[in-house]
Design a binder for these strands. Structure first.
Lengths: 337, 337
DNA sequence: CTGTTAGCGCCTTCAG
DNA sequence: CTGAAGGCGCTAACAG
């Protein structure tokens, strides 16, 4: 292993000078700077992360807590991880992966062992038991997801009320006279996450604005049978219904159930999913969707995180940041009138 | 921050005793042991990871290099990551995520900065330029995927020749008289990965054994049009063809293309995909598949990794470990005769 | 502008 | 069975 002392010796300077050349924390004559950099290059020196963390109290690592483990919804998770990793690297940080099945213990470990400088927490429940722990951690924590009470922590999430409103606006524009939301399975609602409610609120308000009928069909369990039942009930009342399916996992089977009834979305009715663009495009027919914008959400998260880490900069005053979704028209909605 | 000195003071012992209690590297009287553990509990002491790494030269971190970035195939990646993280935690290790778009630089960084004790490298190309670098790293590296020349590194992967043979065996059993492989898009073959060829070899040998016709249709580009063309060519020669699609991403559109021709898999022909079980089950109709067994592959990988880290234990003599796939009969293959 | 020095918190050899 | 002490490699005062 080559240390900064080796570099110092090779460059004919003191060890601390090497350190200062690397950090830029004090001015160095062009001459010695060059010599040191040459020696670093020559010896392919790299600073020891543990030693640096010990001395500087900064690990250059971001902890990322992701929803793995039994019962977790991992659909569309990858773009989040990817974007977070990429943003971290852009600031010369690394990402340490922790899974939600460790619960609060994972958080105390990250902070207690000084494994990272900040934590990104995903899969936030409405009353997530980890939040009080997270808030008392002594390390900045940012939530992806909005709980009922954020405990003073910064949150970033999709603007779900707006997502609901956008879907309904579009259905109104296409001439539908009523809107049906096909909800989540009961277990998701239980375990999770108030984004469903937030979306419903937005959708309902928009429906009222447009004077459209509005209903929610009882949550769909996983699987095709349940989707069939839900669609049956959704279509039972006649009229010209537009369907909204705010559930990445269910969109496919709901679409299939509609097709199985001999109805063609895009001709006989409209269906708008809340899902990743990837999934929406991969489907046949391609689904008109409101995107979850994982990349925008992640980017904003990391932006706030690094602002929190630079004590030079003010953190954003607003604790809750909502990212606007994007509606993409594909094949499952009627053509514009 | 509470240090081991604080614990020592609270327990009325020396700091080194605390260290020995935690590591178990020398015998401690039951009495002092109890006192120390009580103090640790009381103060909720956790060892500082940086300090420990610096002193012990072990980080308790596993580097995981995953295929993110433009052009990477991330289908079915999550179960790998999840299983690797879980196995790491089972040995009190953490996982540091690095993306393939850093290339060899990511590897030298992991090792040079002493960020981890061992590295798991995914998305291995047939002649992966990172391999010589990886082999000279001074840190154990394990590959998920089998390159042409493993450079002395341990590899774990699905047994693709066997996967090809299993699919063909099944098609023979179901009474088909010829087998068509619908290959990968040219760009995948280029960039990647010789698993396609390995699978083809296994499939071809099996077809010969059974006296079946065997052909490969020119690679499918991404998208539905390409799938349509491929299916057209695959079915052009008549007979009773069985299709094998060794491409998670293409299975869906190939299936759709078959349906669009008015043919029903499971009635008019058979289609076997090489894909995750999740994707195979989610599809309508559910796809008979040969699974990629990401969990088995990952578990074996981590088992080897920790054996390499315990210099007490012998590493496995065999460098290349192949995991057996599993064929699951679903709705896209004919009923057994 | 540069060098010297004192830790950061823990592991581990050496003494007892 | 336990304590004292040196050092892991780096940062950041403190001195010049």
């Amino acid at each position: 292993m080559v240390t900064s002392r080796d570099v110092a010796r090779a460059a004919g300077v003191s060890q601390s000078t090497v350190s200062y050349v690397m950090s830029g924390r004090r001015s160095i004559s062009e001459e010695t700077r060059r010599r040191v950099l040459a020696a670093i290059e020559e010896l392919t020196y790299q600073p020891n992360a543990g030693a640096r963390a010990l001395a500087s109290q900064r690990t250059q690592v971001v902890g990322l807590v992701v929803p793995f483990g039994p019962g977790a919804d991992t659909t569309g998770l990858l773009p989040f991880i990817e974007t977070i990793a990429s943003c971290a690297r852009a600031e010369d940080h690394d990402v340490l992966l922790v899974t939600t099945d460790e619960g609060a213990a994972g958080l105390t470990r990250l902070a207690g062992r000084a494994l990272c400088d900040a934590i990104v927490l995903m899969d936030i429940g409405a009353a997530d038991p980890r939040l009080p722990v997270a808030a008392a951690l002594g390390v900045p924590v940012i939530l992806i997801g909005v709980p009922d009470d954020s405990a003073g922590l910064h949150c970033v999430d999709l603007d779900f009320p707006l997502a609901g409103a956008m879907a309904v606006d579009e259905l109104a524009r296409l001439g539908h006279d009523r809107v049906v939301l096909i909800g989540h399975p009961a277990e998701v609602i239980e375990r999770d996450i108030n984004f469903v409610r937030r979306l419903q609120r937005g959708a309902e308000a928009a429906a009222r604005r447009h004077g459209l009928g509005y209903s929610v069909v009882a949550p769909v369990a996983a699987g095709r049978e349940a989707a069939r039942h839900a669609v049956e009930r959704a279509l039972a009342d006649g009229g010209r219904p537009g369907l909204v399916v705010p559930n990445s996992q269910a969109v496919g089977s709901v679409l299939q159930a509609v097709l199985d009834r001999g109805l063609v979305p895009g001709r006989d009715l409209s269906l708008i999913g809340l899902s990743t663009d990837e999934a929406a495009e991969a489907s046949t027919p391609a689904i008109t969707n409101v995107s979850l914008e994982p990349r925008d959400v992640s980017r904003r998260t990391m932006q706030i995180l690094f602002r929190l880490l630079d004590r030079a900069q003010e953190p954003p005053a607003e604790l809750v940041e909502l990212i606007s979704p994007r509606l993409t028209r594909r094949e499952t909605t009627l053509p514009a009138p």
